[in-house]
């Protein structure tokens, strides 16, 4: 006769799966809700609760401001340049780190994480100090000028782009490039004709993330490029400047413009990528 004890194993019922998935769903939903509520609060504030006019009037006022228009133009140009530069560096960097275990590769790998883990202010301060060692002519052209905006954005964005490109190349079967070499390709031809073609979805992701990171950059810009109106002011510094003069409504409006720009870029990249790259 067998004795049933309370610790006897029983197959899990459907209820267990439901509980597991519900738990996960609650966490996902809570985070999505937090993001939605933040955005909703911004819209509500601009729309009347905290401002003196209608939702539309706040945006019109923002777009009519020459300072904000200048910041918007510089933001679009600098973020695009920073993203292009990041991808241009990240493709070879990601490829080398993924394919070769060379001397010092671990050190370089760790070094590339520094802009990601460093406090943004330290990145800006380090750039500022670095340029103190460079010739005065170079310093005058870059520091507190528009090139500093792009360089500060690139310094951080590129590290993210390298991580993404390395992961993209890690996922691509290296044997395809080796087969291409047996078919008559040099390593360069195999890279451009086979590996880079397969890495395009990664390139697109890296460019999108680099662009979005550049858009959100603030600390390094403030220190290295300054926040001079009509000169080195970008949208993130506009939010800061509007806040510092007590115009919370303008700050929130500009924040919403940044949200819209980020969403537009991500959606365009995804739609274009899905259509052209079989993502």
């Amino acid at each position: 006769m067998t004795v049933r004890c309370s610790t006897e194993w029983r197959p899990p019922g459907k209820g267990s799966d439901r509980l597991f998935l519900t738990g996960m769903g609650i966490l996902l939903g809570a985070y999505a809700l937090l993001i939605l509520l933040m955005l909703a609060a911004d819209f509500a504030y601009v729309g009347g609760a905290g401002s003196d006019g209608s939702f539309l009037r706040s945006f019109v006022r923002a777009f009519q401001s020459p300072e904000i228009r200048s910041a918007m133009t510089l933001t679009m140009i600098s973020c695009t340049l920073a993203a292009i530069l990041s991808v241009w560096v990240a493709i070879p960097a990601g490829y080398l780190l993924s394919r070769f275990n060379f001397r010092g590769s671990r050190l370089i790998d760790a070094l590339l994480d520094i802009p990601i883990v460093l406090p943004p202010l330290v990145v800006g301060l380090s750039l500022l100090i670095l340029f103190q060692f460079l010739p005065a002519r170079v310093r005058e052209v870059v520091v507190y000028e528009r090139p500093a905006v792009v360089l500060a954005q690139f310094a951080v964005s590129c590290a993210f782009a390298v991580r993404i490109m390395r992961a993209a190349f890690d996922q691509i079967d290296e044997r395809c490039a080796l087969v291409a070499q047996t078919l008559g390709c040099s390593r360069r031809q195999a890279f451009f004709r086979v590996e880079l073609q397969e890495a395009w979805p990664g390139v697109l992701t890296a460019a999108t993330i680099a662009w979005a990171r550049a858009l959100g950059e603030f600390g390094p810009l403030l220190i290295f490029a300054g926040a001079t109106r009509n000169k080195t002011e970008v949208l993130s510094t506009t939010v800061f400047l509007e806040l510092s003069i007590g115009d919370l409504s303008a700050a929130v409006t500009v924040s919403l413009i940044m949200v819209a720009a980020a969403i537009a870029v991500v959606m365009t990249a995804r739609t274009w990528g899905t259509k052209n790259l079989n993502l």
């Binding site: 044997r175 395809c176 080796l178 291409a180 070499q181 047996t182 397969e198």
Partner: peptide, 28 residues
Amino acid sequence: VPAAREVGYVPQDGALFKTMTVREQLAF
């Protein structure tokens, strides 16, 4: 170098180029 050896190599599972059609693979 591999390109100079004039050797046709078929690795395990083919290792086809994912972004190319069959025609492009044959023409490569």
